[in-house]
Computed example of a mutant assay.
Amino acid sequence: MLVVFSFTTGEFVIAGILPDVAADLAVSIPATGLLVTAYALGMIVGGPVVTVVTARLGRKPLIVGLITVSIIGNLGSAVAPNYGVLLVSRFIAGLVVATFFAVAITIAVSMASENKQASTVAKLTLGMNLGMILGTPIGTFIGQNVNWRATFVAVVACSVVALLLVLPSVPAHPSTVTGSVLGEMRVFAHRDVQLAIALTAVGNVGIVTVFTFIAPLLTDVSGFSAGAVPVLLLVYGAGAVVGNFVGGWLSDKALMPSLAGLLAALAGILTLLWFVSGIQVLAAIFTFVLGALAFAIVPGMQTRVMATASAAPTLAVAVNASSFQAAAAFAGWLGGRVITSGQGLHSIYLVGAILTLAGLAIAVYSLRRDRHMSLSSL
């Protein structure tokens, strides 16, 4: 969880220190924004590639190696003499994230009891929540009051502490790959695996589109002051923590029915916000609810991928993480197109709801498929 916290902070904190980085390295804000893209591209590329290349390594040495690469990437970011080195360093830091997340989940789930797998995933993803609501603002504060390089030094320090905890506590599991590494790619030919990965990408793209533009939605649509946005983001983050654990508990009880129900609730709330987002009290309340629902679906989606890809769970979860990053990249592009098309900022909520309904359709189809296969086996 602490490693995930460090990785998440390292990913999102750049947004808070962009002006400082731009001023120090004498580059434009748009160019500095590509640092976020470089990290995301590292995750998208690294998910499948790093996982396949390292598939035969023992799980503990692999975990240690992945954390070490991240430390090197963030340390390179802290001492980067120019923009080019910083861009490469951000790519390197992102390169190992999806594989680490996949290996960490498979190790943790293998140690959990059968009815506690999704809640175990939720404990790991809590690090993501805390990275967003605590790590990012703390890192931004350090960057603004010391300098932006100190922010990355702090991320490195946190990762080193996490690594020291990993060394004595993570069991030395061998690699689960016994045949051809490339042969593991056959797992993606299975319809259920394809549906599980599509569920993650499509099911999240609606809420990610909304979250990408949440600051202007709160100020320009709901009428909050700019100073209220950090507070409301904390409210969103508090909802995320609650939703993360509730989603894990629900998924342990009934995986696909709970995912379908949560996606339906998320689509409903987004649609409701399309109507009432101009009422500040309701907008504030629904900000908490959005955070809760956005993260309630995460443990179940990860567990679903592992359940359907039992022959190659680590590779499947890594590709799943990459698909989420691709969905996030698409969300930013789509939201911008919606706004510039004349539909207006307000319509982002409706677009998010429609996209979430597409994810719900995949969940319902998967649930029906499961029930049909269960009846066929009787």
Rank of each mutant, 00 (worst) to 15 (best):
A331E: 00
A353M: 02
G359D: 10
L263D: 08
R149T: 06
T151Q: 10
G332Y: 02
F324R: 03
S175P: 04
L233H: 00
V146Q: 08
T308W: 01
V69K: 09
T136C: 06
F286K: 03
A284G: 12
T219H: 10
H190S: 13
G239V: 02
Y236C: 04
G76P: 01
L293N: 02
V177M: 05
D24Y: 04
A118L: 03
I269Y: 00
K253A: 13
S366Q: 11
I269E: 05
S376G: 14
L165T: 12
G46S: 02
L163H: 07
L350R: 10
L272R: 06
V289H: 11
P299T: 12
A283V: 12
A228Q: 15
G335Y: 00
G47I: 04
L360T: 00
L217A: 13
A78I: 04
S110Q: 15
A118K: 00
L163I: 10
I362K: 05
A162E: 12
F286Q: 02
R371V: 14
L217E: 12
G76H: 04
I207T: 09
V170M: 14
S89A: 15
G268S: 09
L165N: 12
E184I: 07
V49L: 15
A265P: 00
E11N: 13
V161I: 15
G73K: 05
R369T: 14
V289A: 12
L350N: 06
G33Y: 00
L262M: 14
D220S: 14
G223D: 11
S377M: 14
L232K: 02
V241Y: 03
D24A: 11
G139Y: 00
G227C: 06
V52I: 15
A55G: 06
I17V: 15
L25D: 03
F101E: 12
K123M: 14
N115Q: 15
I285G: 09
A312F: 07
S366R: 04
A292L: 00
A78M: 10
A328C: 13
V246P: 01
F188T: 02
I279L: 15
A102S: 12
I71F: 00
G58Q: 10
V166L: 08
L350I: 13
V276S: 08
I107A: 01
T219E: 13
